[in-house]
Computed example of a mutant assay.
Amino acid sequence: MKIKRKLEIAVISDVHLGTYGCHAKHLLTYLNSIEPKKLILNGDIIDIWQFSKRYFPKSHLKVIKKIMTMASNGVEVIYITGNHDEMLRKFSNTTIGNISIVDKAVLDLHGKKAWFFHGDVFDVSIQHAKWLAKLGGYGYNFLILINRLFNWYLDKRGKARYSISSKLKNGVKGAIKYIHDFESVAAELAIENGYDYVVCGHIHQPKMEHFENKNGKTIYLNSGDWVENFTALEYQFKRWKIYNFSKDKLTPFSIEDEFNDLEYDNLNYLISAITIVDKPSNKKSN
């Protein structure tokens, strides 16, 4: 019996379908575990920059099919364009069924304003030297491929996985400064424009942090990626949480943690509010 968790919003970004670094099977497992009202795809879902007919495995196609199935079943899918799928920007503000393509989105969440966008608008290398950014993208993709082979070896030896690119990023002062500047600029713009939440992707760094200055305050959120971190953002019970596939598995929201913040009459109502039970089909599989 499969149990799916009900969510108001799930946010994923930086999946990079069509590249060796994409962990499509992990993402598919996650998508099969949730039942969101809204699914926000916050950029770089399909890596058109590095798309190749030679590499687009079935697992990557299954992710696309799953998203389409979710939309056909009533889930509102908001596709926010990023730099790696920027070709879709020519279709911005297009809606087909339950799927809409936009460059940014603003949602009202229980009286609070949430601003969603990918984040490449802050990247000077993309805005002014796109060829250099693409070259860097190919180098990153190669590094991820090497890292994947390395982790395959570690898995065989029963040892913990290791992220070479994360180690490099965390050890380079310039990279740390870039990430900090990205987060600060996004938060300051959100405060300036009166947004309670600002939700980004792009830098592959899952994060939730409160920012405050003399003009106000906001919560900065980043959904991370499905190349290294395998993370998503989830909104339920009027609060956000970072979902981590490697750590949380399929139970990131705890009933005990949330119960005191809710005004429900009984525990049974709460349990029914966060789960959907799919009964096993009677049809025999071929």
Rank of each mutant, 00 (worst) to 15 (best):
L143P: 00
L143C: 15
L145V: 03
N147A: 08
N147S: 15
N147D: 14
R148T: 11
R148K: 15
R148Y: 05
R148H: 12
L149Q: 10
F150V: 04
F150Q: 11
F150P: 05
F150S: 06
F150W: 09
W152G: 15
W152A: 11
Y153G: 04
D155P: 02
K156L: 15
R157F: 01
R161N: 10
Y162W: 11
Y162H: 09
S163H: 09
I164S: 02
K167N: 01
K167C: 05
L168A: 12
G171K: 06
G171V: 03
V172Y: 12
V172S: 15
V172H: 12
K173H: 04
G174F: 02
G174W: 08
A175D: 08
A175K: 06
I176N: 12
I176T: 06
Y178R: 14
S184K: 14
A186K: 05
A187R: 00
E188F: 11
E188L: 04
L189G: 03
A190M: 03
I191L: 07
E192H: 04
Y195L: 05
Y195G: 01
D196P: 02
V198F: 03
V199G: 05
C200V: 06
G201P: 00
H202A: 00
H202Y: 08
H202C: 02
H204M: 11
H204R: 06
Q205A: 10
P206F: 02
P206R: 00
K207S: 14
M208W: 00
M208E: 07
E209S: 12
H210C: 08
H210D: 10
E212N: 05
E212G: 02
N213E: 14
N213H: 13
N213S: 09
K214M: 13
K217F: 10
K217T: 12
I219T: 08
Y220M: 06
Y220P: 02
L221D: 04
N222H: 11
G224T: 01
D225Y: 01
D225Q: 08
W226G: 01
W226A: 08
V227H: 00
E228N: 07
F230Y: 05
A232M: 00
L233I: 07
E234R: 03
E234I: 03
Y235Q: 07
Y235M: 09
Y235R: 06
Q236E: 07
F237G: 09
F237M: 12
K238A: 12
K238Q: 09
K238D: 15
R239W: 04
N244V: 02
N244W: 01
F245G: 04
F245A: 09
F245M: 08
F245Q: 15
S246H: 11
S246D: 15
S246R: 00
K247G: 04
D248G: 05
L250A: 09
P252M: 12
P252I: 03
F253I: 10
S254E: 10
I255Q: 08
D257E: 14
E258V: 14
E258N: 14
